[in-house]
Design a protein around this nucleic acid. Structure first.
Lengths: 327, 327
DNA sequence: AAATAGTGATAGAAAATATCTATCACACAA
DNA sequence: TTGTGTGATAGATATTTTCTATCACTATTT
């Protein structure tokens, strides 16, 4: 839009006040500036826009048709500016606002419900907008700003992020109820040597961990029947397809309340997967994120200690993090 | 809303550009200002609002949650500001805009349809928002800015207005079809001496004119049966209640097409009512209004000369109009 | 008729803000 | 190691905003 200049917000507010008060002097008193300020700023506005906006007389002033036409626009602008200021006010009173949290689908849905209620009670102004993605997607999304922080599992591959350990999540061997190993007490590693184990799809980080566990016990993964989700894997176990290692939070959430799958106890347990919260070192709300991580650890210690190994309360950073930003 | 300051429009536009372009330098190139200008203006905005709005790094910048939350507001403000500029552009290309025209209910509905079509064809950007009122209401409304201009009849009682004569509107005597005077040729004034005439309600200027005409011919107004509108008066004439003087434009619009009322021809005719267009001497668009008055006279001369006495093409001002504003 | 009180406009000075150039410190890529 | 990108800082300059003092005019009051 060529030729026509830009008004300033002050000019528009001065015009609105003159129209409302009916005179330059009344408006100047209302706004706390001098009357010549109002006169000159409105003259400048009229020159910028190329329109006469007010009819001036010695008994006061009324808007022209052109001036009147601007009023709805100015009212809308005022509303938006006050919306901005309201958000600023909200932020200044400690409001935490909306933050986008990325989570893996094999973890988020089984962990977040355990903690978000208390997080929200503690800070009603903090709202977490949760979205799922694979660890690769989560890390890339954190880097390019699509997430503000992510819940993920080690290893975090992109350098330079702040990484706060939350807990280690054990895996447990699950079998159909009529499997020969059920009811036989602790299962030795030799019992599943050569056994074919079910697994989730390869694109999940969890697949690699399932692969590592199978290798650890001399078992093999069935590559012909991969589950698209943990629920699918559970269903396959329940219908007698085979055994699988499943994560503890999933078991607690989706298997413990049922009896279609039996959780076996092994004499030798596979390694935990280490769950962490991560964010950019430049994040404006990094103090808030650190507090959030601490709170999540505490809730895990209070409520989930029987099935998780809660991490020690200190952060680490992945190599590449400079001294510039305290984590 | 205490404490929180006001952003400026430029600051908001700088923030929006940085978020969109992904870096201060790209935004400064896009906006044609130097990069330190962007840096310092956004820092000032963050201080005004008390919020960190951007995460800065050496690879560019992304908005914080607080910064992102401002984007819809800034977009709305930009839209409204461009709406203002669009109106300015429209005005600068000769657009006439919306003007509020006050008219008497005994005249406006019978006159405006004769002229507004051509007025609109001549200037499609001129829109007249028509509202009715009594002459007293019209003059007061013009003074306090509720109307931009008014169609009214003389005398204009408030001083200091610009008054452009349009035409003189004759009155004609109307009778029921079976009245003894019907079919008797021209009616002498003596024929209605002592006759009781119908009239409109007293609050209309027209009532005074009907009173004057009755006095002129030695007749009397019926005060027991006043019509609330010209249509009501016509209906009363048609059902044999009596005679009345009615204005020529009303007759042309509402009676000529019917045969329930007969228009008599008198050897002595009553005075016209003088119809004028009036506006404030300070009106920004007074040149437009003068052109409008000229055009209305010309249309009356072209189309309505058989029933109106069109005024000469020059304006007069009611005493009280200073030399300050050309009319 | 004179004085007073209100209006918006103008002139020039002062204050405040915005923008500039030059340069810095840092990180990353070649 | 060098070159190229980023945002930040310092100080100067330019521009804008606001002020005080006063004007011209009109309407009201005395």
């Amino acid at each position: 839009m060529a030729d026509i200049g830009y008004p300033t917000l002050k000019q528009l507010m001065y015009l609105q006040a003159v129209i409302k008060e009916g005179s330059f002097r009344a408006a100047s008193q209302k706004l706390g500036v001098s009357q010549p300020t109002i006169t000159s700023q409105i003259a400048a506005l009229e020159e910028t826009l190329g329109m006469v906006l007010l009819e001036r007389s010695r008994s006061g002033t009324i808007p022209t048709a052109a001036g009147r036409d601007l009023i709805p626009h100015i009212t809308n602008i005022e509303t938006e500016v006050n919306g901005i200021r309201e958000q600023a006010r909200f932020a200044s009173t400690g409001g935490s606002g909306v933050h986008r949290l990325g989570v893996p689908p094999t973890l988020g849905p089984y962990f977040l419900p355990e903690v978000l209620s208390e997080v929200h009670t503690t800070d009603p102004t903090l709202r977490l907008y949760v979205r799922e993605g694979t660890p690769r997607e989560l890390e890339n999304g954190l880097l390019d700003g699509r997430y503000d922080l992510i819940l993920t599992t080690m290893p975090v591959e992109i350098g330079g992020l702040v990484v706060e350990p939350l807990f280690g999540e054990p895996f447990k061997l699950c079998a159909p109820p009529d499997h020969p190993l059920v009811g036989k007490g602790k299962v030795d590693a030799s019992a599943i040597k050569g056994e074919r184990l079910l697994a989730i799809e390869e694109r999940h980080r969890l697949f690699e961990q399932m692969q590592a566990m199978a290798n650890q016990f001399g078992a093999r993964l069935m590559r012909d029947y991969e589950g698209t989700s943990l629920d699918t894997v559970r269903q396959m176990i329940g219908t007698g397809f085979g055994l699988a290692f499943l994560p503890a939070l999933y078991i607690r959430s989706e298997i413990a309340p049922r009896n279609d799958v039996t959780v076996l106890e092994m004499s030798e347990t596979p390694s935990d997967r280490d769950v962490v919260l991560a964010w950019r070192p430049t994040a404006a709300k990094r103090q808030l994120y650190r507090s959030l991580a601490s709170q999540m650890r505490r809730i895990c210690r209070d409520k989930l200690a029987d099935c998780l190994h809660v991490a020690a309360p200190q952060s680490t950073s992945v190599p590449g993090d400079g001294d510039k930003y305290p984590s």
